[in-house]
């Protein structure tokens, strides 16, 4: 039907004794926006963080199953986790600019991957280009082009979130994971982020976790619905929203649960 970019196979996550995700099997199609929806506490963020192994950073987690990215199980012992995270970008719910200038924030990723950049013949001159291109792609360039060297923490929250988007894009990930990317923003700033993601989905696979059903309806090409750690329904947005197969999906969409 479609070409999967990430395949999640019989995926289980435990926090201590709490079984947070139970036997999830789902495909994330290449390109387009996949939204993960479901009531709060159902494991949306856990599933998202499984895809770039940020889960490793939480103490006391245990996992079972596979997450395949381009034919590689990213939980294989031999896999370089930094390589995974270079391919799979991440946008957190609240913007956390690094303690440095706007320019350095965007240049951070390319700089720490300098060795790969250098092998492609990159240099500092290119860095200026990378910073500008990604700030444009995040829709922030016009607002900050005259103050690239000022501290990133002086930007508004909405601007900071777009800076974080530019920072994530600068590593040129194939996949972009967004964890409730607009939950900390006002409606106008949120709308800007949504618009940027819509523009980006032509070249990239984007996964958005959201608890706002209306946002999911606006953005989604594909949908994954979780319910208390279990997968309820997955498929193209039209099918899930218009003609859900599962009773719980219908109840959730009608606002009866969650």
């Amino acid at each position: 039907m479609y070409d999967p970019h990430i395949r999640i196979n019989k995926w289980n996550v435990w926090y201590g004794s709490d079984h947070a995700l139970v036997n999830i099997t789902a495909d994330i199609p290449a390109k387009g926006i996949t939204t993960i929806i479901g009531p709060s506490g159902c494991g949306k963020t856990t599933l998202l963080k499984s895809m770039n192994r940020l889960l490793d950073e939480m103490a006391g987690t245990r996992v079972k199953g596979q997450v395949w990215l381009d034919g590689i199980n990213i939980y294989d012992p031999g896999v370089d986790v930094t390589e995974v995270r270079t391919r799979v970008g991440f946008l957190a719910p609240k913007p956390f600019p690094l303690p440095m200038s706007i320019y350095d924030n965007v240049a951070y990723g390319p700089r720490i991957h300098r060795h790969t950049l250098n092998s492609r013949g990159g240099n500092d001159h290119d860095l200026d280009g990378i910073v500008e291109n990604n700030l444009r792609a995040a829709g922030l360039w016009e607002e900050v082009k005259d103050r690239l060297r000022t501290s990133a923490t002086r930007l508004s929250t909405g601007q900071q979130q777009r800076l974080c988007l530019a920072r994530a894009l600068a590593v040129e990930p194939d996949v972009l994971l967004c964890d409730e990317p607009t939950s900390a923003l006002d409606p106008i700033a949120a709308q800007k982020i949504e618009a940027q993601l819509q523009a980006l989905k032509k070249e990239r696979t984007i996964v958005v976790v959201t608890h706002m059903l209306r946002q999911a309806r606006r953005m989604a090409d594909y949908v994954i619905l979780l319910w208390m750690g279990e997968l309820v329904e997955t498929g193209p947005a039209m099918q899930v929203f218009v003609n859900p197969r599962d009773e719980r999906t219908r109840a959730y969409l009608d606002g009866d649960i969650g």
């Binding site: 770039n52 390589e83 956390f96």
Partner: peptide, 22 residues
């Protein structure tokens, strides 16, 4: 803040790079 560390790690930085630069 832990989120600041994760912001750096999520960009593919190693733990040591994260400690050093962030």
């Amino acid at each position: 803040p832990q989120d600041l560390r994760e912001a750096s790690l999520a960009l593919g930085a190693t733990r040591w790079q994260t400690i050093k630069f962030v």
